[in-house]
Design a protein around this nucleic acid. Structure first.
Length: 232
DNA sequence: GGATAAGTAAACAGTG
DNA sequence: ACACTGTTTACTTATC
């Protein structure tokens, strides 16, 4: 994923480390063994190919790594099986709607779930109660938020937020967009948790439950980090 | 229960 | 000398 998201479709090991650290906050506090695992997998897996750097390049050491085109479908299949696929901060930052949210003080959780493929819209996923809408707390939508609860009827009635065209354009740039996957972006806005997903996505109850569990897992993970005394 | 894949730890050599 | 990179082996764990 790190390599695929890079502009040149190739990254040094250090670049892969940085992408992981930016995309998966867990690893910021994790022991360093995962770096060894990254290098181990790059060397061992036939899916990755080492590109020797030009001798004229004096910046950094080591080689660049790319994904072998012939193994790319297999890698995407792995993602498909896992049902989970986390995206980069840059992807979120490139999202105009999320940038708009950032202007309102949105703090992004930066987690995504891939399920299907299509255009995008924004849905409200989790809210203990509707936010107070003030001049410095503008609504992202005139539609009332839909709480993420075990009550499936409420979830089926989730309303779309105006969001479609800009995000659809971004999705075409997604290097994994041809994989049959799209990204679900979570981000935090006050006490709400928002979700960006394809416009014509139909969420079945099983998917909704998975998303709810994912949201709860994030909250639980955050609580554990708080207990451990670390910020997240 | 066995085969396989994935994850992790460790050692070691090469390089900047 | 040191840190980083890349390779390899061994072991554990998870999945099929």
């Amino acid at each position: 994923m790190a390599i695929d998201y890079s502009p040149d479709k190739r990254l040094p090991v250090k670049g892969i480390y940085e992408w992981i650290l930016n995309s998966f906050p867990y690893y910021r506090a994790a022991p360093g063994g995962w770096r060894n695992s990254v290098r181990h997998n790059l060397s061992l897996s036939k899916s990755f190919r080492r590109i020797h750097r030009d001798k004229n390049q004096s910046v950094g050491k080591g080689s660049l790594w790319c994904v072998c085109p012939e193994y790319r479908p297999a890698l995407l299949e792995v993602l498909r099986k896992t049902q989970y696929y986390h995206s980069t901060n840059s992807n979120l930052l490139n999202n105009p709607a999320l940038l708009e949210g950032a202007d309102y003080g949105v703090s992004m959780v930066c987690d995504t779930v891939a399920i299907s493929d299509s255009l995008s819209q924004t849905l409200l996923l989790s809210s203990p109660s509707p936010p107070a809408l003030t001049s410095d707390n503008p609504p992202l939508s005139s539609n009332p938020p839909c709480p993420l609860t075990p009550d499936h009827e409420e979830l089926v009635n989730m309303e779309a937020v105006e969001y479609e065209e800009e995000v659809g354009e971004e999705m075409e740039k997604d290097p994994l967009s041809d994989s049959g996957y799209i990204e679900f972006h979570y981000y935090q806005y006050h006490q709400y948790q928002y979700l960006v997903l394809p416009g014509d996505t139909e969420l079945d109850l099983e998917t909704v439950e998975i998303l709810q569990l994912d949201a709860e897992a994030q909250e639980a993970a955050g609580s554990l980090l708080d207990l451990a005394g670390g910020g997240h």
